[in-house]
Every structure is written in C-alpha cells, then in structure tokens.
C-alpha cells in the first residue's frame, strides 16, 4: 500500500497511510503514517467500536493536516487490550515446543467468496470491476 501512497502523493494528492505493521510501513516509507498497535486486520479500529474507529481516523486527519516532515509515522496511544499477550503468538508455533507452520490459505487464482450466495449475486459485466491497463 505504501507504494500506492507514494504514487498518489507524487501526483499531488496528499495521503495518509494507516498501519498496524510498523516495521513494514517504515521500510516502504509512505509520505505519512499513523501507527496503531493492534493485531493485523483491524487497521481502522475495533469492530463495532465507533470510539476507537473515530480516534484512529481523527489522528490520520490531523497527521495529514499537520505533518511537515516527509515519511513521519505517528504512533497512537491505543491498545488492543489490557495486556499485550496476543503478540507472543503472532507467526509463531502455537505451543512452545510446537512446529512452525504457515497458516495462510492456499494461493489460488479462483475467486474466493465469503458466502456462496455472493457468487450467484455477481452482476454481469461488472462496471465497477477495474483492471489496470484496461481502457
């Protein structure tokens, strides 16, 4: 995403990138960032928690309005829960003596629907499906 932010910014549109993966975001180095110390997959807040969602986006807006240094990532003082034990298991064996494993889904080029009914609901010709390079 940082690569896209850099391209958009280069066109003159200021961007701010949310992040919950600080080392990756710092390496890709987008124009501005806001870091939230949550597990991946909740970059824009906790589910059904408008207070946490608003807090992150307000910080992003402020960062967009105020940042003067290219590449600055502002860390927010938000916590996922009262302790950080969730971090111990990230990308690690499920037990101390366990085997490392790759729990990602298989890479396949077949569309992966959330619900089977979604497949039947697909509209023909899909005008909102965009393919880079297509006219």
């Amino acid at each position: 995403m940082g690569l896209i932010a850099r391209e958009v910014e280069a066109r003159g549109i200021p961007t701010v990138s949310l992040s919950s993966a600080l080392s990756i975001t710092a390496s890709v180095n987008p124009p501005r960032g806001v870091y939230t110390d949550y597990p991946l997959g909740r970059t824009a807040g906790k589910p059904n928690d408008p207070a946490s969602q608003d807090a992150i986006l307000r910080a992003a807006i402020a960062q967009l309005a105020e940042a003067t240094v290219p590449g600055e990532i502002r860390s927010l003082d938000l916590r996922w829960c009262e302790n950080d034990d969730w971090k111990d298991g990230v990308m690690r064996p499920k037990s101390p003596a366990g085997q490392a494993e790759d729990d990602r889904a298989e890479r396949t080029d077949v569309p992966q629907y959330q619900f089977e009914a979604d497949r039947q609901a697909v509209e023909p010709n899909c005008p909102t499906c965009l393919v880079p390079g297509a006219a």
Partner: peptide, 24 residues
C-alpha cells in the same frame, strides 16, 4: 508500475483533495 498508477488515475478523476490509505 501497474496497480498504483491505475488507482492514482481514478483518484485524480474523482478530484479528491486527499486520500486515506488502509492496508491490513
């Protein structure tokens, strides 16, 4: 070279002033 320029084209066409980027 492929995805970023195409998304940027759409944001330009939409005439947005700023953009919020949300990775996971």
């Amino acid at each position: 070279e492929v995805l970023a320029p195409s998304i940027a084209d759409h944001l330009e066409n939409d005439e947005v002033d700023v953009a919020l980027m949300v990775p996971v």
